[in-house]
Design a protein around this nucleic acid. Structure first.
Length: 459
RNA sequence: GGUGGAGUGGCUGAGCGGCCCAAAGCAACAGCCUGCAAAGCUGUCAACCCACGGGUUCAAAUCCCGUCUCCACCUCCA
């Protein structure tokens, strides 16, 4: 079975075939850098990271674009009296740090909206020329997309114009309540630096035109997959689609939307102010646990955050980590995706059923532990190879990175272990336990085996 | 008003016509192992048949109809 993806435009599972065999181009809506990331942003980035890794594991090269919206109403507002550009970069950095910590691969391209103003102007000019956009009727530099000129408007979200609520008033020189801004005229209370010279006057781009312009710049008139959070489906993605198609481009072949992170059943969002931030999380568990938890529901299912969620994920992850730690002497020369269990592959191909894939991972870990206890080196090697291939696909690789152990610590622990062994042989268990406590205080976990004691550094 | 989605064990969460007397993880209990632990393994625990009521089918958690509850979106949001 080959990969099937749920296309949210056609609302069905479709076999995924790249437009160019062996190569996949994807565009993912990145954040508006208005405030620090919360779990919802991380989930979105993670979903597409796993999709990308899976495509790579199944012999595709992938070009991935994830934009940064660095000019926007909220960026200007939240910057307050500060330089908004500096503010936006600072927020962007907090996203980058979180992505890095979560082991999310760098996108191929990470364009900023402010770097592509000229492309947006070009696209807007074209839309005006084709009769799908117009300069504001009030003579300002506002430019709007003319939704009434595009009969397919609403095709992505299966809506009809007459059922949409739209702007309650026709304002800023709009012709119709559903028309949306391609460019917004400079406002006197906004910094001069937040406006660019355009054929229509000083203005800054609207949100939707950015993605259309940048997708075209990097991926051309058509590409394979467009991704983003479910809450961006409308209006953002609907508008992107309308702009690009009205300008004559095919645009995305597949539309994917990840479901949201909820808390107590309600959407986690910046506007509701109920976001669980990266800072909150650092207390709750390791980054590995957070990544694991964010992977633990299929991407189209809501994922509800609770107090115990990260703790449970940590425990589940520790099983995998524990297996890899106790088998560090089993050398796997290189990751071989051919070793992936069929059940794992099937799960991933079924619209990225990561929870199903994790179930397979745990099955193999158990089999590996059994082989370990039975000293069945052949089966153990199989298991280790499979586990390592799977965690590469899932991006959980950092769980087994060997911590750096200083020679000093090494010597210290071994010395104490010898003493403890002597105490045990002398049946002085009180002393043995005391030494164990001393060793554990060094951040080391002991595992007594049949004829030796293994230890690992927690750091 | 419109458009989508969801309701599965104590918790998280897969399954979406037969392999389901429902995966996996967490939590809980017991056994093995251990000087005792930890880790690991094994078993148990578990879903009054998968919100409720009808129906289709040889066969339904899975399809259809109705009801209830919840969530998201309808121009700020990943």
């Amino acid at each position: 079975m080959a990969l099937e993806l749920f296309d949210s435009k056609t609302q069905e599972l479709r076999p995924f075939t790249p437009l160019t065999a062996g190569h996949v181009e994807m565009y993912v809506c990145g954040p508006t850098v208005q405030s620090a990331p919360h779990l919802g942003h991380l989930r979105s980035a993670l979903v597409y990271d796993i999709l990308r890794r899976w495509l790579i594991a199944t012999n595709h090269t992938v070009t991935m674009v994830r934009n940064v919206t660095d000019i926007d109403d909220k960026v200007l507002v939240n910057a307050g009296s500060r330089d908004w550009i500096e503010f936006a970069r600072e927020v962007e950095l907090t996203f980058d740090e979180a992505y890095l910590a979560l082991n999310i691969l760098e996108p191929t391209h990470k364009p900023h909206a402010t770097e592509h103003i000229a492309d947006m102007i070009e696209l807007t000019k074209k839309l005006i020329q084709l009769g799908h956009a117009y300069q504001a009727t009030d003579g300002s530099a506002n430019v709007f997309f003319d939704t009434t000129s595009w009969p397919e408007y609403g095709e992505l979200t299966n809506q009809k114009l007459e059922n949409m609520e739209g702007e309650s008033d026709v304002t800023f020189g709009r012709k119709s309540p559903n028309d949306f801004a391609l460019f917004k005229a400079h406002k006197s209370d906004e910094p001069e630096t937040a406006a660019w010279e355009t054929p229509w006057g000083k203005a800054r781009p609207g949100w939707h035109i950015e993605c259309s312009a940048m997708a075209k710049y990097f991926l051309g008139e058509s590409f394979d997959i467009h991704g983003g959070g479910l809450d961006l489906r409308f209006p953002h993605h609907e508008n992107e689609l309308a702009q690009s198609r009205a300008a004559g481009d095919q645009f995305a072949n597949f539309w994917t939307h990840n479901a949201l992170v909820t808390i107590n059943g309600n959407k986690m969002s910046k506007s509701l102010g109920n976001g669980v931030s990266v800072k909150d999380l650092e207390q709750a568990g390791s980054w590995g646990a957070i990544r694991y938890w964010l992977s633990s529901a299929q991407y189209r299912s809501n994922l509800d955050y609770s107090e115990s969620s990260i703790r449970d994920a940590q425990a589940a992850l520790d099983r995998i980590t524990g297996f890899l730690k106790r088998t560090t002497n089993v050398k796997v020369i290189e990751i071989d995706y051919a070793k992936l269990p069929q059940a794992f592959t099937d799960a991933m191909n079924a619209d990225l059923n990561v929870p199903g894939a994790l179930a397979v991972l745990h099955d193999v870990v158990r089999a590996g532990n059994t082989a370990f206890d039975a000293s069945d080196t052949e089966k153990l090697l199989d298991s280790v190879e499979q586990v390592k291939a799977m965690i590469h696909v899932l991006g959980l690789t950092f769980v087994y990175q060997e911590p750096v152990i200083s020679e000093e610590l090494q010597r210290q622990v071994e010395e104490l272990l010898t003493k403890r062994q002597e105490a045990k042989l002398a049946k002085d268990f009180a002393l043995a336990d005391q030494i164990r406590a001393e060793i554990e205080d060094l951040g080391v976990t002991l595992k007594d085996m049949k004829d030796q004691t293994m230890w690992s550094f927690n750091g």
